[in-house]
Design a binder for these strands. Structure first.
Ligand SMILES: [Mn+2]
Ligand SMILES: [Mn+2]
Ligand SMILES: [Zn+2]
Ligand SMILES: [Zn+2]
Lengths: 138, 138
DNA sequence: AATCACATGCAACAATGTTGCAAATAATTT
DNA sequence: AAATTATTTGCAACATTGTTGCATGTGATT
């Protein structure tokens, strides 16, 4: 919904612009995570590379999307489901990356387990990335 | 030990060369993981950028080092402790990255927990990356 | 010592990401 | 509704990171 997207942007004190609306739309209709390159393709080069970089950065800062580390170190992004806000992310769910089709899933129902760290170490964030074959590729 | 390093290389059916020996040495004396840039610095530009890339690739393939995904998506490498071999890694331990000093630790004693995946998903690999403050920076 | 297989360095390129700045657009005020 | 202000965008230029082909050099094998 167009209005819903505008709401999200306003809530984060961002002005409602064409590129931001379009990119948020893409995330909402995507079933998995998106990389910078995916967005470039799906926007048909309507927006400058730099604008996409800056939009993604802004969205991460504002808690609208979160980054997903990957084994091959390519940056991916997905919508935050919980109530994330500026500087405070709460996306403590497991991520799954399919070795076959490359789709990155947010397994929102599977929370990352507690890890007991050695003495002297303090945890701030924890990421769990599982890779293998997804339900569509088996 | 120089001889030990030569042994590792021969066991992996790699010829013993200057760059490989030096880079393996660096990993052995490093307490944490190393990025490509770290190696470039510590070799004082004695070897070509490309050689370092190819050496790291080869070491990963042969099961001498393993990659570590990071939240900021910069590639890091660390020595494999277990008996990893060509195409078969068994480094199922947790990794810790210090937000302050940037050191990446292999927490060899902490194994990654079992994750129960949704129906249809098959696990091949799992990475756990914890970040926060390390024992030296607290 | 000669041969062979492999590793290296160089050059050239591709991909990815960053920065400064002027022009364009959105939000706010009058 | 028009003017003002604040923010966003596109462009150019640059930096960093990673890849490939090929000639040369070095290590391993005979
Ligand atoms: Mn997610
Ligand atoms: Mn490790
Ligand atoms: Zn798949
Ligand atoms: Zn530290």
């Amino acid at each position: 919904m167009k209005n819903e997207i505008a709401e999200i942007l306003k809530r984060s004190q961002l002005s409602v612009t064409g590129s931001r609306t379009k990119i948020l739309e893409l995330f909402q209709e995507a079933n998995g995570a998106l990389a910078h390159a995916d967005i470039e393709k799906r926007t048909d080069d309507s927006y400058d590379r730099v604008t996409i970089y800056r939009t993604l950065q802004t969205f991460v800062e504002k808690g609208i999307i979160h980054t997903i580390p990957t084994a091959d170190n390519s940056v991916r992004y997905a919508l935050c489901k919980d109530e994330c806000s500026t500087g405070h992310h709460h996306d403590n769910h497991v991520h799954f990356i399919c070795d076959d089709c490359g789709t990155t899933y947010c397994l929102d129902n599977i929370t990352v387990p507690e890890i007991t760290l050695p003495k002297g170490f303090t945890q701030k964030r924890a990421d769990v990335i599982v890779s293998g074959i997804c339900k569509n590729c088996e």
